[in-house]
Amino acid sequence: MHPAFSVIFLTTLIGAGQGLFLALVTGQSYAAVGLVNVTNPNEFYTYGSIVAILFLIAGLGASFFHLGRPERAWRSAARWRTSWLSREVIVLPIFMSMVFAYGLLHYFNWDPNILGAEQPLQGQLSLFIGIIGAVVCFALFLSTGMIYACMKFLQEWYTPLTVINYTLLGSASGFMLATLHAAIYEPGLTSLYGVWATIITLVALLTRLASLYRNARIKYKSSMQSAIGVRHNNIDQKAMGMMGGSFNTREFFHGASPFWFRSIRWTFLIMTFPVPLAFLWAGLETGIQVFLLLAFISQYLGLIAERWFFFAQANHPQNIYYQAI
């Protein structure tokens, strides 16, 4: 497939925003049961929600560049019964409004104890909204991943690993961002987020390697023989029906040289996993916030490469029909 930067930015940006929101709710859950002490909850959660929303808006904005007719985008909520894309279109604004509500509750410090008692949980309403938001967040990860994982003939994508990787990689970058956010507004939580960012990044490395391993061993179901229905081992395309290229040759081939393709794989493997972990370690050890910023930036750049590779690696069966001009 030809990697579209609109979709690359959409999935990576909302992934980071979702992960950041998950991190905020994680922090609040820890604080609610007294595992950590948040000294300045107002600022920390409000600013965190604003940053998460900015990432989500940026991702949503990027997605419009993917559409040929963006003015009709509202129509895309129609077929949620069958289409994962439609489900994502519905869940994304719901999630954004949840993050907005979460931030608003914290900004106005409007946090009644809806369960009726002050103990054992503090901040019950915002925690409640946060937990519902986290559920919606996972629904959004599921929708985004299933857009790709539901297409059975794109065999590289047709695996639960697609959804798992979208979830873990998004969460990893979000927790990485949360570490930086905590270092600025709530230094007490920095190590909590740092540890979680490390754990999620390492698990994501395992699942991403698993999908690379799986995809390197795919047995393609379609062949030239099944594509044109001629049972002969020696089929050689002589003409694809046009000489100037078409949508079929532009949309489904990544067009990169084998060397470039391989280097992107190594780039994302290095930039997404070891480099940010090293920066994160340095940041946590020294307490210098620039290291934490570099950790997030390097991982985000790595994720852009990762997403590029994710698309480029998918081999569409229609390419069989376009082997030679």
């Binding site: 089929i235 002589k238 694809m240 029906g241 046009m242 029909y321």
Partner: peptide
Amino acid sequence: FFNRVQSFEI
């Protein structure tokens, strides 16, 4: 185009 003719040498 809605329709293309491709050629294959077998």
